[in-house]
Nucleic acid binder design. Sequence first.
DNA 1: TTGACTCCCTAACGGACGTTAGATAGATTT
DNA 2: AAATCTATCTAACGTCCGTTAGGGAGTCAA
Lengths: 227, 227
Amino acid sequence: MRSPSKTSASRSGAKVIELRRTPDTRDRVLHVAQALFAERGYRGTSLRDIARRIGIKAPSLLHHFPSKQQLYIAVLEKMFESLEDAANAVAWGRESRQDRMRQAVRDAIDFIASHPDFVRLMWKEMADESGVGRQVLKRRLPPLFSIAVNFIFHGQREGEFRPEVDPLHFMWSLNSITIGYFTTAAMIKRLWNMNLLGPAMIERRKREVIDTVERTLFTTPGSMPPQ
Amino acid sequence: MRSPSKTSASRSGAKVIELRRTPDTRDRVLHVAQALFAERGYRGTSLRDIARRIGIKAPSLLHHFPSKQQLYIAVLEKMFESLEDAANAVAWGRESRQDRMRQAVRDAIDFIASHPDFVRLMWKEMADESGVGRQVLKRRLPPLFSIAVNFIFHGQREGEFRPEVDPLHFMWSLNSITIGYFTTAAMIKRLWNMNLLGPAMIERRKREVIDTVERTLFTTPGSMPPQ
DNA sequence: TTGACTCCCTAACGGACGTTAGATAGATTT
DNA sequence: AAATCTATCTAACGTCCGTTAGGGAGTCAA
């Protein structure tokens, strides 16, 4: 009987045993791996790279994760968990749908701005056609999209959102706007040395996306776009 | 004197000598390499993969291109050439700026839809932070952006575009909307098996982007969005 | 006919990679 | 005190990669 709880443990604190003496190497591996995978991609990151940054040797990594693939999957899963928490908070809120929609845009942009690794990894993963993470995305993304699409659908039933908008199409556009914007910004920074992601620009971006949402989706004008 | 014209030749037809007997293997290499790089990325594509699909052996590739890096760069350069041709056609047109803007959106979306490799490669390259193509992007992208930004700037001078719009910011959004949309669509197809890129959807997308441009950039409403 | 050139081949080198085997030092449990 | 477990190490295996060396068949010009 050797470590049957390897995958099921380590979630949702309040463990007393087994946490007592872990020198958190596993967490450091996850953190470093996330940064390197986001920067260089799955194939561009070697176990020796990750290990070096932590201060151990490559084979020691495989004491914490059974393989490079499983380590990558663990990184993705960790990211999706934090994302799902945020999505559920929006879906189960008590304010009006329009207010929750506005807040969701703000939260999403804040989340992306404060988790740069997330966008970079997701960007790579979205374009990856045969990669390791495909199964994770296939399992994790549809529920998230469903939450959003259902949210819009119910908003249409209740009269807060325009009925002629196709929910899937709308979320699809919103997703590409948000993710694409931040990656384009990173590229512009690299090519022109312009930092376009300061706090003021992020606030401006929130305002713009919210304006677009209000114009496109809301039945009643939310804040009257300047026109 | 051995092949000093290796890089400078082979562009812009009308060569008589040296083209006489090429069995177009070089072009086939470029074509296959473009498809594979777009699908699997630079690191995920081996010279042996490319060679196998052409029907030769890997070392023979290096008879046509001096290295894998140079082959990749050649693929990128070829793509940028076709893109620049399209951009110049817009910049030097004789219609009104609003009409040319509308046509540019249509052309861009048509270009992307008919060159799927382009978006996939560009998507990967945009997110690549230390890769081989960085120098190419650094040389090729700023002029393209400049053409677009100048186009908008002059349109503002001439009163066809709203003066309060920041041209760089606007182009940045437009770029992420367009590229992001198509990659998201590819991902949705992979995850849900839904084909969102049929001709009807592409026409619809053109209409939506043009509507957005008219609402955001034009001083006079172009086609009165349904509201 | 001869010599050069083009375009492909096979063989192989050196390096990087993921992974395995096995040892060791320290902590924990019995 | 003895046994077990944990977390690391070194050494090395097999594979894949980009690239080089060198050869050979066909084409073409002198």
